[in-house]
Write a protein that binds this DNA or RNA. Structure first.
Lengths: 233, 233
DNA sequence: CGAGACATTGAGTAGGTTCAAAGACCGTGG
DNA sequence: CCACGGTCTTTGAACCTACTCAATGTCTCG
């Protein structure tokens, strides 16, 4: 419970809907877990439905076609929730990109709590609507933007995302002002619907034009925000 | 109130969360409206936030880039809700494709009701999650599928959608077995992220291969579901 | 230092876009 | 009833972007 009170997302995530007292009740049904980069959790075929709230780290949500092509349909940052999907149709898969700290609840227990504390559902709804809006913005990117615009948009999005770094995160090695790019080139391409090579190519272009700079392949800085925004469309 | 009790979506939409008695209370804050094809309603820049529940007809939700490129990010069918978006960032626009009958509520009034009858928020959450899932599936289409797969997927989606036809709908003119395609070619292309011409071309291909058949440019039938599914990926 | 994973870059190709012309459909008015 | 104009659709040809394949370069870790 001390952990809960000191939690990095105590006030911003779903728990923000609860008083300290209520939180102590809620805390009983939760379980604290950690996942390492590359670990998968909460696939939609999971045995038991759940709700999870991320405190630290980053994860990707992927949907894959039968022939192996896959699309990243969402990125999870604190204090996002995940897993409360009702759909069974279409397989998705959540995978940790960095080390993840997450609080999970059995869906059934969670729903009982939600009856007691209606604010919980309100927070879930709020997040679902935000996610929906983000997904729709991304649909515009995937459906309408050129490769260059997509890459530029991607860096914009990443540079706006406040990231939480965990103890052993190698971010400390980066120069100040640089963001850690939590995705490799392959994940980037799955995210913006382009080819690996095409992504590389356009990153090089952005570098040459001095819109962004790199400190190693995974640490970047935005040099010229104004023109990057223009390029992103 | 009689209208409410006889409403086509009495039991499936948000109202399904209410007893007849509660519905009569809820009914007081609602307003019944009709829109004609092409009419726009509930843009995100609207003066006042609202929630709307569609009873009859079809609408499209569009997001547009500054230079005019636009992407259809959602289709609204009964008993979908719309408008409960919290985001202000990104402009979207709802436009009727057929004649629409819709029940609208001021967001503030709606929220008061939601406090009284928590089931309302539950329904909204359920729909938001379904919409999110649908949006994510569409992201896979936009990010990964070829033109042919997109067009095939589109017809699949349309053929699965139960549609409500309104009194003066010209659907009666179509041969039995045919679906009314509520979108023209331009809307189709905005929906699947392709060019107008490319859409036409691949529709022709599907026709030639006897996967679908047309009775006029807006009435189609699926002839070979099995192969259409295969093609859709 | 060498192996493996990841990233970059070049050359050729394929699929989608663009531009333009022709064809179908529908309502209007002579 | 048919001719006319407008809108929407179909189709062809040339072009261009992004993909494919392959070679080279870089970084990390044992």
């Amino acid at each position: 419970m001390t952990r809960c009170l000191n939690c990095a997302v105590r006030n911003v995530g779903i728990c923000g809907a609860l008083t300290d007292e209520q939180l102590s009740d809620f805390h009983r049904i939760g379980q604290w877990r950690t996942y390492q980069p590359g670990e998968r959790f909460f696939s939609s075929q999971e045995d038991e439905p759940f709700v999870g709230a991320i405190h630290k780290g980053t994860a990707k949500v992927t949907k894959t076609l039968l022939d192996g092509r896959s699309q990243i349909v969402g990125l999870l940052f604190p204090p996002n929730c995940c897993g409360q999907t009702l759909s069974v149709d279409n397989a998705y898969l959540i995978e940790a990109l960095t080390r993840i700290e997450i609080c999970i609840f059995k869906l059934a227990s969670f729903q009982q709590m939600a009856m007691k504390y209606p604010g919980l559902n309100g927070r879930l709804l709020k997040q679902a609507l935000e996610d929906l809006d983000a997904a729709q913005d991304w649909m515009v990117l995937l459906g309408q933007k050129s490769a260059e615009e997509r890459v530029a948009s991607f860096f914009l999005r990443m540079s706006k995302q406040p990231t939480t770094f965990i103890n052993d995160d190698i971010n400390v090695a980066a120069k100040p002002g640089y963001f850690r790019l939590q995705l490799g080139r392959q994940d980037m391409s799955d995210c913006i619907g382009l080819n690996y090579d095409t992504v590389c190519r356009h990153i090089s272009t952005l570098k040459k034009r001095n819109l962004i700079a790199f400190d190693g392949p995974n640490y970047f800085r935005v040099l010229d925000m104004e023109n990057l925004v223009k390029l992103a469309g």
